[in-house]
């Protein structure tokens, strides 16, 4: 496969966004992450951070140090060799070998029975499907350390809850659409809660603060 051609646009006067359409796939995620790392490794003066998402990444810079047009030119030249690449771009910096991160889950979520009912399965099957595969971290956002993991087994796909909860407890393991996540802090949320974990996902006083980063693999292990 080849990747869709990128669109490059200004995100105000302090960021450039590179976007490869709207698809969500593992290969595209690898491609985006590889390119984002290449841009980051370029060490462009004034660039503060390169932020990857599903099908796009943004280069954030200090407009008092570097102009939009200069950052854009750098980005275009870094993208050029990968234009017709059939394989995902690899990051310039030797990426650390990260083993899949195992997260122990007690499948006692408030919505596990409802999920079973709505998907026409038993709760044991729901647990089996959820814990039976390796997920990829596509992006972090919503709140610090909230990692969007996927893809979920098709059979577990459900739209978000109609009435979001005002407060989802910290450590809740949840699903929605084709994704799953662990709530790193107690926040409002509209996903289906299927379990809980004692694993700390985000600690602002720790280094690194977030357990997961984009590109990581995650496996949920059922306990008790």
């Amino acid at each position: 496969m080849t990747f869709p051609p990128p669109s490059i646009h200004a995100l105000g006067d302090s960021a450039v966004t590179v976007r490869f359409g709207d698809a969500i796939s593992g290969e595209l995620s690898d491609h985006v992450l590889g390119l984002a790392r290449n841009v980051g490794a370029e060490g462009i003066e004034g660039v503060i951070e390169v932020v990857p998402s599903y099908a796009s990444f943004s280069v954030i810079f200090d407009p008092l140090v570097v102009r939009f047009s200069e950052v854009r030119e750098h980005v275009v030249s870094i993208l050029e060799p990968f234009r017709f690449s059939p394989r995902p771009a690899r990051g310039a910096s030797p990426s650390r070998v990260r083993l899949p991160i195992r997260i122990q889950v007690r499948y006692d979520g408030a919505d596990v029975d409802e999920v079973a009912r709505r998907t026409g399965m038993s709760s044991e099957e729901v647990i089996q499907l959820h814990s039976g595969r390796e997920y990829r971290v596509f992006v972090l956002g919503f709140v610090p350390g909230f990692a969007y993991l996927g893809p979920l087994d098709d059979r577990l796909e459900l739209p978000r809850r109609e009435a979001p909860r005002k407060r989802v407890p910290v450590g809740s393991v949840a699903i929605a659409g084709t994704q799953t996540a662990v709530y790193p802090s107690s926040t409002p949320g509209g996903w289906h809660l299927i379990g809980t974990t004692a694993q700390t996902m985000f600690d602002p006083h720790a280094d690194p603060a977030a357990l997961l980063e984009v590109g990581d693999r995650v496996i949920f292990e059922p306990i008790g």
Partner: peptide, 11 residues
């Protein structure tokens, strides 16, 4: 709606 992209203050 779109596939989520990075955003910043001011967007």
């Amino acid at each position: 709606s779109i596939t989520s992209e990075p955003v910043l203050p001011g967007v």
